[in-house]
């Protein structure tokens, strides 16, 4: 097996899906000859040709809208939006069409499309290139929202997303694109959607997170371990539909829950998880549910970015507070 970075795993999954299924095609800005600004589609145009790997004009709304039409007409488009910050104009297509076409036509027309976009900060980029507003997309019934946190999960979850009969938005933690490598077998095995992944077992508290924050949370868990605190770390992986059962089972065991996300706090998806715990886990909780998130500010320019994104130290500190409560 070969060790691959997360972005290489994305490339591998795209390649695999296009080889397996002729109806899969890739479209977006600079995805062709350039191979994507992060090289996620590198080499695909050489292997599969310009008909199936299509450079588009800089028109995000039409990239999404064309994908809806392609999907309804029997293809499986995988559209790339260059950065999540530029995906706001695709919300209209996702909210009003992609997520509704199946229900609107009672199953006659469907929308098996994937919309990929890198999200999150940590690469010292220009404004609008470091956003984490996945919660906007988790509010859309009929849609799946998937965020991988490692090369292997990126490969398996992207394959699953492409094979899924419904629309999926797939947000890739760009900070992890090249941060670490692991062995990724090109075995064509998809990972299950709609399921959390328990990254680390622990009995003292449950830390629920996703995407790039899995990395920082695991670092914090290591620190806590040295202090005698065993954190169970859950990677949500599919935010919508949520596998709340896994989270609930863990919290019933530990009695404590910390939710970590890179997005700002108010209206963030952590609020949904906390609300469900309030509904279903009240009698199991030994301490209030706590959230570690970015501050409720706009994403700052890179000079202050490290003070905005939650750090392992901030995560560990919040865990200690929970442990001190009870």
């Amino acid at each position: 097996m070969t060790e691959r970075s997360l972005v290489e795993a994305i490339n591998l999954a795209l390649s695999r899906a296009m080889t397996e299924d002729e109806s899969v095609l890739v479209l977006g800005e600079d995805v062709g000859v350039d191979g994507g600004v992060f090289r996620a589609t590198a080499g695909l145009i050489d292997r599969f040709g310009a008909e199936r790997v299509r450079d588009t004009p800089i028109s995000e709304a039409v990239i999404a809208g064309v994908s809806v039409g392609l999907a309804a007409a029997g293809f499986r488009p995988v559209a790339e939006i260059q950065f999540m910050g530029f995906s706001l104009t695709v919300l209209d297509q996702l909210v009003n069409h992609a997520s509704r076409l199946r229900n609107r036509t009672q199953g006659r027309l469907t929308c098996p499309m994937v919309l990929r976009a890198p999200y999150g900060g940590g690469i010292h980029a220009l404004e609008h290139h470091s956003e984490s507003f996945e919660a906007l997309f988790t509010h859309i019934p009929g849609l799946r929202v998937v965020i991988p946190s490692s090369p292997r999960r990126a490969y398996g979850l992207l394959l699953a997303a492409i094979r899924d009969p419904d629309p999926v938005v797939f947000f890739e933690p760009k900070r992890l694109y090249r941060l670490a490598r692991e062995e990724v077998a090109d075995d064509g095995e998809a990972l299950p959607l709609d399921q959390c992944v328990t990254l680390r077992n622990g009995s003292d508290l449950t830390v629920v997170t996703w995407g790039a924050m899995c990395h920082d949370t695991l670092m914090a868990a290591k620190t806590l371990e040295d202090e005698g605190i065993e954190a169970e770390v859950i990677d949500v992986a599919t935010l919508r539909p949520l596998d709340f059962a896994t989270i609930l089972t863990s919290v019933e065991k530990t009695g404590r829950c910390l939710i970590v996300h890179e997005a700002v706090m108010t209206g963030g998806f952590g609020g949904e998880i906390a609300a469900r715990l309030a509904e279903h886990a009240l009698m199991s909780l030994l301490a209030p549910v706590k959230r570690v998130t970015a501050w409720d500010t706009v994403v700052p320019y890179p000079r202050h970015e490290s003070h905005f994104i939650p750090s392992p130290a901030r995560i560990a500190a919040a865990a200690r507070e929970i442990m001190e409560f009870a």
Binding site: E51, V68, G69, L70, A72, A73, F75, L109
Partner: peptide
């Protein structure tokens, strides 16, 4: 294969491009 009524004005114009691309491919 006909699309249903699209209520949000002009939002179906990109779908037609996608359908036409599917036919061409």
């Amino acid at each position: 294969e006909d699309f249903p009524v699209s209520v949000p004005v002009a939002s179906h114009a990109p779908h037609a491009v996608g359908v036409a691309l599917a036919m061409r491919l």
